[in-house]
Design a protein around this nucleic acid. Sequence first.
DNA 1: AGCTGTGGCAGGGAGG
DNA 2: CCTCCCTGCCAC
Length: 767
Amino acid sequence: MKFGPLITGQGSTQNIIYVQQISANRMRLYCKERGKIVQSEKEFFPFFYLTDSTLLKGFGEKFWQKKLEGNGEYQYLCVFDDWNSMWRAVRIIYKNLKLENIPATTFSDVPEIYIKTDPVTQFLLQSGETFFKGLEFNDLSRMQLDIETYSAKGSSRPARPSDRIIIIVLSDNSGWEKTISGEKLSEKEMLIELMNTINERDPDILEGHNILSFDLPYICSRCKYNEIEFRIGRDGSIPLIESVDSTFSWESRFDYVTIVGRQVVDTLPLVSQHDSVKRDMDEYGLKYSAKHFNVAAEDRIYIEGEKISWYWDNDPEILIEYAKDDVAEVKGLSDILFPSYFYQAQMLPLDFDQLIRVGVSTKIELLMVREYLREKHSLPQSKVGGQTTGGYTNVFYTGVYEKIIHADVESLYPSIILNQKLSPESDRLNLFLQLLKELTEQRIKLKHLMQAELDPKLRQKYDSVQSTFKIFINSFYGYLGFFKAIFNDYHKADMVTSSGQKILKEIIDKFLEDNCKVIEVDTDGLYFSPPENVSDEQAEKELVNKINLGLPEGINLTFGGRFSRMMSYKKKNYALLTYDNRLIVKGSSLISRAIEKYARNFIKFCIESIITNNLDDIPKVYMNLRSDIIKHALPIMDLCKSETLRDNFAGYIKAVEAGKRTKSASYELAIKYYGNKFEPGDRITYFITGTDPNVKIYENCELVEYYNPKSPSENVSYYLKKLDEYISRFEIFFSKTHFQNLFPSEEQFQFQADKISVLNKRAEYED
DNA sequence: AGCTGTGGCAGGGAGG
DNA sequence: CCTCCCTGCCAC
């Protein structure tokens, strides 16, 4: 059996502002009623759902059991007095199933944390209430926090006695602001001042950029060093800090900070998640993000990380201004990005921490289960199996083309689901479609609001909420094919994708009938070049609109943008030039973090030259790059590769020994220098050593830290060979002689008389 | 404890 | 040489 017979429960709940735990299964709720905060005490119990009550044979202890209605697989709701008896029950079930693998969480490692944090959620799940329901966004008191730290040598580590906090800046959404500076106060006095201030202002939310991984852990660690109990929980408890490894969604590691009665909002993951839809940011640092979201003060001060200590010694006033600008930016970012989570917290029984962490499929499931429980209807079991089809992708022409139009189907998969009324077989209450419909309508409303709004800040707010809804909406399809979803339905998922393929092919045919040159298509959109007579933006839009009118009801083809040129390389790999001469490069073979910087820059230069047809400089730049490599003239970072480790030590060794994977440079280096002390999410930056171009990589590599510029050890011939492999990407754009003239090898310097030109080809493709 | 999907390109290692 | 498998990164 692939899936267990039990699931833990999810339901949903009002007006709760914060929850204080009194004992193991008793907690105090602070609720808001008519503007006043009132207290109430309620009991909670752990529970799960079960397919078959006889599985609990031999359990012996008393527990509360209820049979659910309907014919879903999970027929029984079992409620226990405490966590220990619930986990004992889990063991009995697994024993009765004769499964040897007892799930990882057994009593021995039901840690304190589990008891401390989980019952809150469990209670909320069970009683059907939701966080912050009934509150307006502005009712929340949001405090922003930023610290600056002093370290004598470069990177700061809280444990080093010489490192310390020098500036703490606080602000909140009422316009209040406070600076606690180390000029007159000792670090200990600063921390006490901070604690008192937080307790006085009593914020619901604590906000900061990277606050979970830096500011709060650093503060707590300095409190420990100064022997202060940092009591900022609403029950007088100190923050609970956990380090958690995470290899999914956004980058690297993630930490949890639990402050009882308050929520912590880190704008870093908010920014990173926002970008996971739009994908137009280079990094997620505070300064860059603030500029990107247009919340940076024009005259703000910028200080590089390593200069902070210098400024503290020489010009502390400037540093204080800098820190103030930082908290202002945090507030700006949060004003834009946080509201959508606030609204989600009213829909879902999750706190902000969880809202940021869990994936959208989990959220959809919560919406479903919540209603099933309200109806006291039993729940289905996940189906075993898998999806077989996906989107349609093709490239019809390679080369450089002018006057490019992008057209795409708005929300293709959700439209298909709604149009064809595709819902999971097991969804007996038919909620799936109702939910999707509701979310879609809400989103359209928000978009209209946004279009009518003149205030740019409000517009951006509406935009961020509606784009959150968009993520929800687009995930309904993914949910159908998710193996852990209890309402999954692989057949329906396949129906969605194959309908999508059919519709896209229909659209291609229609454009071809109208004498358009279709260049590249992927899943829900296409790039094409219109015939001569379509000469301006207006005509282009009319053309798309005309095709749209001939499409099935509910499928909406929209004008997705226009570009002066396109360089088409392979499926999912192309470059675009906008009319204001911005270059957009897409695809893992043209732009990827796996490509060394020297090559990435050169590839970009080549693409730019090719797409604009300014090929004259390529031979010179190419020869210069080659000679720079030979002369060790490039910064070593330009030759390095950075890789993220996905496995831990044990996992990697096991996979290698089992022949499941081969050795790789990044892991071998991690083992060499860190032994078994590396974790998923760690990044390794290394270069290739040796002299032979065909060396075994994992035996000839070195961490960038150990590069010695005085005796350069990088493998010159390897990097020359790599460069030639990279430029071979451009072979398909030129005739053989033209290509050799563009990228001359050392011995041949002859330049051809006739002008080098790009070769446009019909790509080989299958239908 | 938590983690939506398929499709595609490319490089490295291992073995024929 | 080539092919296969695995991994990483990316598009949608």
